[in-house]
């Protein structure tokens, strides 16, 4: 069921999304300029994400109940990711940690990203609207192709010492960028 449950968009949704991106950009700029340290940056990012999640979600419109649940799960996982990353980096920087503890703190940002992957899988399973499901699967495949292409290309550039080494967790942000680009393309095409 979807059609009857579609909630019309509210004007304030764009405002909350804009506020989120604006606050993220300001925090990033402050961090890059050296005005704040890493820990403060993570705390501010966690506060910004946490405080804007609820109004952003309430103001948003979703094409189906499954999509609303997906958005909620992804937002909560993202908040957990920022929080977990902040705690892990702070502990890593400020303390001499044993290997088991380092293993444990590496799980702090990792597990919420598993939450994002699980949320996507659940969405595809739960979505009752076949067209919306088809659209998401196509966008996911484009994102997968994008991350594979970028990863392979970067890997060879790195092997021939043209670019620096990057950490493997970048696959998720790159996949998310690919997903965003694919969804933007679908929107432009009117799909």
């Amino acid at each position: 069921m979807t059609g009857g449950d579609t909630v019309p968009p509210k004007r304030s949704h764009r405002l909350w999304v804009s506020l989120f991106f604006l606050s993220t950009a300001i925090i990033g700029a402050l961090r890059i300029s050296g005005a704040i340290n890493g820990t403060t940056g993570f705390i501010l990012l966690a506060i910004a994400t946490g405080s804007l999640i609820i109004p952003m979600r309430r103001a948003g419109s979703c094409a189906s109940p499954a999509m609303a649940t997906y958005n909620q799960r992804v937002l909560l996982s993202s908040f957990g990711y920022v929080l977990g990353l902040g705690i892990a980096v702070t502990l890593w920087n400020d303390y001499e940690l044993s290997r088991p503890v380092v293993f444990a703190i590496s799980l702090l940002p990792t597990l919420p990203t598993f939450g994002i992957i699980w949320a996507m899988a659940r969405y595809i399973a739960d979505e009752q609207d076949e067209y919306l499901r088809h659209r998401t699967i196509m966008a996911s495949l484009v994102a997968l192709g994008f991350v594979l292409a970028v990863g392979i290309f970067w890997g060879f550039l790195e092997m021939f010492e043209l670019v620096p080494h990057i950490w493997a967790w970048w696959v998720l942000p790159v996949w998310a960028i690919g997903l965003g680009l694919a969804q933007l393309w679908q929107k432009v095409r009117g799909a």
Binding site: T2, G3, T6, A63, D129, Y131, L132, H134, G190, A191
Partner: peptide, 29 residues
């Protein structure tokens, strides 16, 4: 489109995509 979407219990986007030929519905739909 929304009226039809409500009757079919699908999203308005689905009706639009089918109507404009961008998506062929499944046999049950």
């Amino acid at each position: 489109q929304q009226d039809l979407a409500t009757r079919l219990d699908v999203s308005r986007q689905s009706v639009n995509a089918i109507e404009t030929g961008r998506y062929d519905p499944s046999l049950p739909l």
